[in-house]
Design a protein around this nucleic acid. Structure first.
Lengths: 243, 243
DNA sequence: CCAAAAGTGTTGATGTTACACCCATGA
DNA sequence: TCATGGGTGTAACATCAACACTTTTGG
């Protein structure tokens, strides 16, 4: 009988339908990055919103926004929803980061599907939601669960991806100067970039459309650019908006 | 009362502990790649093992090896276990691919944490496990669930990663010639590479250690190389063997 | 000797880095 | 006018693709 072999797969250590005692719950969390200019300084920081926990595991500590996966929604939808409910934010870019499922990462068994997101400068709603604060990604306090490690990994992905994709644009509004864009790269990469070389690289990439408007400031006006909508922020391969 | 705000997160659409009716099960599957030389030909194919389903959803169709996540094991451990149980294989390289959780990907709600793995030439156990067959990755039949799309994505990742890491080495035994290694790259990328340029690139990468042994064949003997164990197969960032 | 794969050399195209220099504006 | 950031030019350097060429073996 053919069934015998596959039986091994399905029944040896786990029954066809896991019993309630084996309950594994699925949560969804999101690491949301945006930039903030320090008041009274020209420095730009990568910041992210955290939510203070008011329940038992790690009560009082800061944690990533998230919640339980609903049986009727996809993973990305759950990320958007929980994120909107906790912080009121709706990011322009959302991508799956990793599934964290170590046995001891929570007192009960929880597998967290973590997403990461970018928020444009014009998307930051300053509606002060209670229990939500923004933190400098470079100097976080001790977070709940394994969320420190998760943010570390998200930062690593962000820095990596900025090198081979155009995601940096996901942090800027519609129109921006090349200095604005360079500032984004510098904040993420943590080092200064040559303005001349940066200009050429980004101009030759074909992702920018020059407008005929200029931003007038304290010195020579800088041309405003627009993002080429036909170019994806990042090549996600055969994956599109799928879960 | 502080609790009110966070309540929104936890209770609006999902209760603190999901009820049994909302049951979401977590499965783990693995896409295992290895290379096979076509008999009577010099062509090398990327192949992967599939398991024929003997149960209700998609019975009779081929599917990725996998099984249910056990409450007492981590994600990577579950991938290794289910994979060993179904195919008897123990790959040299294992990395998380993606979490698939679309609502309609299975008749019941299943979130699949999918891993992908590389099998060295010397790791292929030819113990003919029942209901397991090897397929050319380039021409798969219609698979169960969304497994066709999953394999597509895994192939995309493999091809991408071969360009910026040395994972290709995960497909070869201890000692190999540069032609062997080039053959791996050619099979994955699907195009011929210039032997001269390939040699220089890989020699300058510092990942190979030349031995003083040669493989004698029909023509001029080729030097055998060994991997530099101090160089990781792929930079996984702050993630190591974690779940 | 011959065929064929192993291995080396060379050249032009292309991209990256550093930095000198000119341009346009507000103050 | 001057200081400053916007914007252009250019030479040194590294990387890479194409391909001619030499070396070494089995037959």
């Amino acid at each position: 009988m053919i069934e015998s072999t596959v039986r091994v797969t399905m029944t040896r250590t786990a029954p066809e339908v896991p019993s309630p005692a084996d309950a594994i719950r699925v949560a969804v969390s999101t690491v949301i990055f945006t930039l903030r200019r320090l008041p009274g300084s020209d420095a730009v920081q990568v910041v992210l919103p955290l939510v203070r926990r008011t329940r038992d595991p790690h009560e009082g500590q800061w944690a990533l926004p998230g919640g339980w996966l609903d049986a009727t929604e996809g993973l990305a939808a759950a990320a958007s929803r929980t994120l909107g409910e906790t912080t009121g934010l709706a990011p322009s870019y959302l991508e799956q980061l990793y599934a964290f499922g170590a046995v001891d990462r929570s007192p009960t068994r929880v597998v967290s599907i973590v997403y990461w997101a970018l928020l444009r400068a014009d998307e930051i709603t300053d509606s002060t939601v209670e229990n939500v604060s923004w933190f400098d990604a470079a100097s976080l306090p001790r977070l709940a669960f394994d969320h420190n490690e998760i943010v570390e990994y998200a930062l690593w992905r962000l820095r990596n991806k900025v090198g081979y994709s155009r995601i940096a644009h996901g942090l800027l509004a519609d129109e921006f100067t090349l200095a604005d864009l360079r500032e984004v790269y510098e904040a993420i990469l943590g080092r200064r970039l040559d303005p001349a070389n940066f200009r050429r690289q980004v101009e030759n990439s074909g992702t920018l459309i020059p407008t005929d408007r200029f931003r007038t400031g304290s010195h020579r006006p800088a041309r405003l650019y627009r993002y080429n909508q036909h170019v994806e922020l990042a090549d996600r391969g055969p994956l599109d908006a799928r879960d």
